[in-house]
């Protein structure tokens, strides 16, 4: 049973000085599973993601990814290991175009020469077009710079970036927070594509309908602790139940110390 677990955290904890942003998080994710993380603002959701993806170094605890304990030094390490992340603050370079951003930090090169390796623009453009087609993202002109795009288009570029590269795990931190109806639908389609491809996902979202539609399970964070683990596919759990856990009206017995 253990070998179908793609990600596990044990006692994952992060303190910022006196701020206990994340406390003893025990979390598991199975291969192919789509799990939502919910919780109020400041509950520690993004902090949890940052400890897994090497953006920050954890105070204590273990992260076991794909069967091995890991300790990523930086986001690139995590990405090389197969974790693709859409961060809450978009990691896009405004003055660069779509292919540049998709391949930022992992450019395709024609000719290797250390930092002076020659870029393969054509291959990057073609793969970008492929990725956009695959994900159904509409961008009028991929060679326009990001700064000329709407917030929704930017978000789509950031998400297309994670979908371009085959990954063992995708993490999205509030990917549709700033999006209109159509763009949200596009992003949700990308997420369904991932589900069909059997790629596991951690989705942080405040959107109850979206989470209910897309995910197998909801993990609720409250004040830095996990307070519920809800199997929404197999149990009859309503939005009101989830809200009760988020606000603290309810706590699952096994997480009683989190209350």
């Amino acid at each position: 049973m253990t070998n179908d677990i793609i990600l596990e955290t044990r006692d994952l904890t992060k303190h910022y000085g006196g701020v206990h942003a994340l406390q003893g998080a025990n979390f598991t994710l199975r291969k192919g599973e789509h799990v939502a993380i919910m919780g109020d603002n400041g509950a520690g959701k993004s902090t949890f993601v940052r400890q897994i993806t090497g953006v920050e170094q954890r105070t204590r605890g273990d992260v076991i990814f794909d069967g091995k304990p890991v300790h990523f030094e930086n986001p690139m390490d995590a990405r090389n290991a197969g974790i693709e992340t859409v961060f809450q603050t978009l990691a896009l370079a405004d003055q660069l175009d779509v292919p540049d951003n998709l391949f930022l930090g992992r450019e395709l090169v024609k000719f290797k020469l250390g930092p002076f390796s020659i870029l393969d623009y054509k291959a990057m453009r073609e793969r970008t077009m492929g990725a956009l087609e695959k994900t159904g993202v509409k961008i009028p002109n991929i060679r326009g710079t990001i700064e000329r795009m709407s917030g929704g288009q930017r978000q789509c570029v950031a998400i297309a970036r994670t979908a371009t590269f085959h990954s063992k795990l995708t993490i999205m931190d509030e990917p549709t927070a700033a999006l209109g109806v159509q763009e949200t639908a596009q992003v949700e389609n990308i997420i369904r594509t991932l589900k069909e491809a059997g790629e596991p996902l951690i989705l942080i979202s405040h959107n109850m309908r979206q989470v209910m539609d897309l995910c197998d399970r909801i993990v609720v964070f409250r004040r830095g602790r996990i307070c519920a683990n809800l199997d929404i596919k197999n149990n009859d759990i309503t939005g009101e139940d989830v809200v009760a856990y988020i606000t603290g009206a309810k706590t699952q017995p096994e997480y009683a110390d989190a209350a």
Binding site: T89, G105, L119
Partner: peptide
Amino acid sequence: TVYGKHTYAIGSNEDAARMSG
């Protein structure tokens, strides 16, 4: 070259550049 691309990327959004590895 990659050097050039990264020079623009850092000036454009240093955090994004760092997050991109």
